[in-house]
């Protein structure tokens, strides 16, 4: 392929054009990947064992970090919100304030970020190693779809585990707030939980639920895609893992804003 060299004035257009094509191309492949995974998800045979294994990989392995970050987030919220509310003499609303921040916003987002760091990165690295050591090719030539065996179970497990991890984060966080607000700062237990019951509705819980559900899809989709499409060698796996975590985290925050403005 011989091409005539471009006039210097046209080069920026060439660069922008090339860049645009590359972006559209990779977006297209990213989308096709998801469509293929979905197709594998809704057509038998279903890989139940792979699915259970992925729940363990994504969910169970993230329990400790969710527990720790949930507890400390709740304690920080308990302290900071108490110190603010007490200025207005309305510390009675500590319970609902902690619960609402966690359930609507911090629970889904922080749990998703933590699971991304703990399990999403491991997912990309594992699939990336399977790619560079030709294990994914081996599946393909056995006429067994890697989408069905590797991608679909991970995405489905994300759908199940993210809401559960978020629920755990919320519950542990609310108890963290309770520890600080009630045990440390002397608010009455009845006020903390009573006002929470009054002010937190099922709508709030559903906002958190939909967020966590969509984060589950976003994170597993990004992380499996990056794992399937690593470059060469160990360096390629390292780069893909970093990209997967960064991209997942950014998408979580962007999508959170979007969901927050749609689900009032």
């Amino acid at each position: 392929m011989l091409e005539r060299p471009l006039a210097p004035a046209l080069r920026p257009f060439d660069a922008v054009g090339g860049w645009t094509i590359a972006v559209v191309d990779s977006l297209g492949r990213f989308g096709t990947f998801f469509a293929e995974a979905l197709a594998a998800l809704v057509t038998p045979p279903f890989k139940i064992r792979a699915f259970v294994d992925r729940i363990h990989f994504i969910g169970y392995n993230s329990l400790l970090i969710i527990f720790l970050t949930g507890a400390f987030t709740g304690m920080v919220l308990g302290l900071q919100i108490y110190l603010t509310l007490v200025r207005f003499g309305s510390e009675a609303f500590l319970g609902p304030a902690v619960a609402l921040s966690l359930i609507r916003e911090l629970g889904p987002v922080l749990a998703a970020l933590m699971v991304t760091g703990r399990a999403g990165s491991a997912l990309t690295a594992e699939l990336g190693i399977m790619r560079i050591t030709e294990q994914i090719d081996a599946l393909t030539v056995m006429a067994l779809s890697p989408m069905r065996y590797l991608a679909a179970p991970s995405i489905l497990a994300g759908l199940v585990t993210f809401p559960l991890m978020t629920a755990l984060f919320d519950v542990v966080g609310i108890f963290g707030g309770y520890l600080v607000g009630v045990k440390l700062l002397g608010l009455s237990e009845g006020t903390y939980f009573g006002e929470m019951q009054t002010f937190v509705g099922i709508d709030d819980i559903m906002v958190g639920f939909w967020k966590s559900l969509s984060f589950g899809v976003i994170v597993t989709w990004v992380c499996t895609y990056k794992g399937f499409n690593v470059g060469h060698g160990a360096e390629g796996v390292a780069r893909a893992t970093t990209q997967a975590v960064v991209l997942s985290s950014v998408l979580i925050l962007v999508w959170d804003y979007f969901m927050g403005s749609v689900l009032q």
């Binding site: 399977m130 050591t133 030709e134 294990q135 090719d137 081996a138 030539v141 056995m142 067994l144």
Partner: peptide, 30 residues
């Protein structure tokens, strides 16, 4: 591909499975 057998350069055994399960895998699944 069902009529094929492939031995990859590095072996490409599945790390997550025992050798028995590696060999059993195509039989079980195919």
């Amino acid at each position: 591909r069902r009529t094929y057998g492939v031995v990859f350069q590095g072996g490409a055994l599945f790390d997550s499975m025992s050798c028995f399960d590696n060999v059993a895998f195509p039989l079980r699944e195919k």
